[in-house]
Nucleic acid binder design. Structure first.
Lengths: 154, 154
DNA sequence: TAATTAAAGACCTGAATGGTCCTGTTTCGG
DNA sequence: CCGAAACAGGACCATTCAGGTCTTTAATTA
């Protein structure tokens, strides 16, 4: 299915919502806004804080706020922070497959990984915000498809 | 991590290897070639057969062979056959998020899903074969990156 | 100093994936 | 005609890991 982990999903939602608030926001408040369970929100925020996406302020009247603008955060970077490196398969960077498969495809996998990574790096959290930005991204996709000519099958 | 399931990984390796043989090949033989455990190979081949990627021949002297050329199989189609639809997150096609998140980002996710899908559809199994085809795909990636200008963050 | 809130980490649970096996059914060879 | 070989199609188990909870500690403010 090639699906994203839910934590990464949450992380993106949380960041976007956090960007729409002003001042510091507590994790319970963000939980209320997003509908994500509070402990999970806290967990995600810790990770995001550790990776420099948000700034935390401890103590009374503490909370979180964005470390930089949404436009300066790519979807890829958030996913990488929460879930680790984006890699579709075990054999990455020329390392041998763990199972010792004689697949000989390791290099080719890297190509795919790079393609996916580039795609996600090209999408900022700013463009994830509802409505307005969608058309922009859609235009990108169309241009992207026009470029894609390697081949397609049924 | 956004990683591919191992079954889909195997499926691609098996198809590529199958394409390099001539005549029908038994699943034990493919297991030997790929290094994947035989029962697993058999399982994957059944799925691939059901989805029309390979043709099976039953009985003694039976085995499998490709239903069409590797160039006519996209990475995306194989993944979709083995793992189901490619979708990075729960909210797809405008459906509400199952958790009832008030994320309001559902539409934006679709954009990402489409982008990933297009990328993988642009890569054929033929181009997964070692060596020769890599340069071609790499050129694609570069062109693709040049097109991507939405924005990128740290 | 007391209350509030984030930081950090241990820990539990459950779903889902990967992997195995078993029982047909078909086809070829003797 | 019979047996072996090989696919078909399940059921089934086991392991992993993500997701979520709880507890303790530390910092900040009133």
């Amino acid at each position: 299915m090639l699906k994203l982990s839910r934590l990464a999903d949450y992380a993106i939602v949380i960041l976007v919502k956090l960007g729409e608030q002003d001042g510091v926001v507590t994790s319970p408040a963000l939980a209320a806004i997003t509908g994500v369970p509070e402990p999970t929100v806290a967990k995600v925020l810790k990770v995001l804080s550790a990776h420099g996406f948000v700034l935390s302020q401890r103590g009374a009247k503490g909370g979180y706020r964005l470390a930089r603008s949404l436009a300066d955060m790519s979807v890829a970077s958030v996913i990488a922070a929460v879930d680790g490196e984006i890699a579709l398969t075990a054999c990455v960077g020329g390392r041998e497959c763990d199972t010792g498969l004689s697949c000989g495809l390791c290099g080719s996998w890297d190509v795919i990984n790079t393609a996916i990574r580039s795609t996600l790096e090209g999408i900022s959290l700013e463009s994830m915000r509802p409505k307005e930005a969608c058309s922009t991204v859609l235009a990108q996709i169309n241009k992207l498809n026009a470029t894609q000519t390697v081949r397609e099958g049924a």
